[in-house]
Design a protein around this nucleic acid. Structure first.
Length: 420
RNA sequence: GUGGGCGUAGCUCAGUUGGUUAGAGCGCCAGGUUGUGGUCCUGGAGGCCGGGGGUUCGAGACCCCUCGUCCACCCCA
């Protein structure tokens, strides 16, 4: 084969999906900008070290990193997520806090592709730095929830948990290690390996044989410092006040090591495939410090574009926007008149398409239909002679001719009449 | 990274225990309609049957390898 296809785990997003993607991002932008979040565009690659802070016990770092050496001998990695980049940017620019930003764009992880899981995958998300008020946690969560509503999704469930402060988390992790080690014989082989790397993650196992022992595991609640417990209670109270439904899940630990205190995940109950998590996030107080900045609180979430759209499909909401054109110009005299008219209409804000290659009138009309035009403007030799054009509504309306000098206003009027 | 299913026209898929010129529907192009789309009718274009090797007189069908894709696991969005 001498032809090419896109690399594994990547694909072309064609119309109308591409328009749907754009609308998705625009909808997200509207929701979060309304709340004072500002757009940030971090680079798609960073020095590898930026991402190593995500934790060396996470697979995102150990085996899924898309890293390489550039021509200057630097260790570079394509970003596997954007939180670390945003924190790096914070350290680099030191903006005044609270710093509330949102982003949209692709991330990269080297893993085996599947539906809803790609090597290049898009996320939208927000990060808020410099505030450790639990009210901010609640705001962040409410914005995600608000966005899902805006898309029309109803079957989205919010799971929430706290991982405590760093000390709490460490004590809890130790307790888990002890508990699972005592019950090692009851654990699946895979979970035993996970146990060595990160006991917290054993809680994530979906293997049936692990469920019983996980059920009896100690919970984080018994290890929370007073401060962390209070913080969590405050977040929950705020969610209650905003009437945001949630499910407490003390097994929710999430993949990246930097999470502290509040963590949450949004799951689509409309999806039956394995990947039902359509968004998630949490607090990461301490990450900025690890990246060389001052001790700074931080919280955010990321929402997966593909998976969320799969959920939209499953619920039959958020359809692709219409990409048709208002006017289609049919010119059987060679195309110059079409060129003139297209220019006139386009520069006056009317969307117009036309045919090329001297196609028959029938073929051009067919193209007009396919293009979804509300009206066709027909220019034949008679019209050229008389200095007119024919305006033909593509629906039920009657076609009529109009002088060339009036064409712009007539078309505007007609489009208005047709409501398009 | 592990295990399994599937790769035939632009798309969705037929193709008998291996048998000669590889099919359908949709889409596309043209004509029926010498100035008119959406319905209908007729015709046409478009395939190294994912790639490589093997078995055989003969392979789209069978075997091996490889690539891609889907599903499950792992993990995550």
């Amino acid at each position: 084969m001498s032809s090419f296809a896109s690399s594994p785990g990547t694909r072309d997003i064609l119309s109308p999906d591409s328009s749907r993607w754009r609308l998705f991002q625009a909808t997200f932008a509207e929701v979060v900008e309304r709340a004072g979040y500002q757009y940030i565009i971090p680079p798609m690659f960073e020095e590898l070290g930026v991402f190593l802070r995500l934790g060396d016990s996470t697979e995102v770092v150990t085996k899924e990193m898309y890293d390489f050496e550039d021509k200057g001998g630097r260790r570079i990695a394509l970003r596997p997520e954007q939180t670390a980049s945003v924190c790096r940017a914070f350290v680099e620019h030191r903006p005044t806090t609270p710093w509330k930003v949102w982003y949209a764009g692709p991330n990269f992880r080297y893993e085996k592709p599947q539906q809803g899981r790609y090597r290049q995958f898009d996320q939208v998300g927000i990060e808020a730095l410099g505030v450790d008020d639990p009210m901010l946690d609640a705001e962040v969560i409410s914005l995600a929830s608000n966005f899902y509503q805006e898309l029309g999704l109803q079957q989205v469930q919010l799971f929430i948990n706290t991982l405590g402060d760093e000390g709490d988390r460490d004590k809890y992790t130790e307790a888990l290690r002890l508990y699972f080690t005592e019950n090692l014989s009851l654990l699946s082989a895979e979970s035993r390996i996970t146990l060595e790397k990160n006991p917290l993650r054993v809680l994530d196992s979906k293997r049936p044989e692990d469920q019983a022992i996980i059920g009896g595991a100690p919970t984080i609640r018994d290890y929370l410092s007073d401060g962390a417990a209070e913080h969590f209670q405050a977040v929950l109270s705020a969610l209650d006040a905003m009437n945001i439904k949630y499910t407490l899940s003390d097994r929710l630990v999430r993949g990246l090591d930097y999470y502290r205190r509040t963590t949450f995940e949004f799951v689509s109950t409309a999806l039956t495939a394995a990947h039902t998590a359509i968004g998630g996030g949490g607090r990461y107080d301490g990450l900025v410090e690890q990246l060389g900045g001052p001790a700074t609180a931080g919280i955010g979430f990321a929402i997966g574009l593909d998976r969320t759209l799969l959920a939209c499909d499953a619920e039959n909401v958020f359809a692709a926007p219409n990409t048709s054109v208002s006017v289609f110009v049919v010119d059987t005299t060679g195309g110059i008149h079409a060129a003139e008219l297209c220019l006139l209409l386009r520069s006056n804000g009317v969307s117009v398409d036309r045919a090329f290659d001297h196609r028959s009138m029938k073929a051009q009309m067919k193209a007009a239909d396919r293009r979804g035009a509300a009206i066709a403007v027909i220019i034949g030799s008679d019209e050229v002679e008389q200095g007119t054009v024919v305006i033909r509504p593509m629906g039920d309306g009657q076609q009529f001719s109009c002088p060339k000098s009036n064409v712009l206003e007539t078309i505007r009027l007609e489009l208005q009449k047709l409501g398009s």
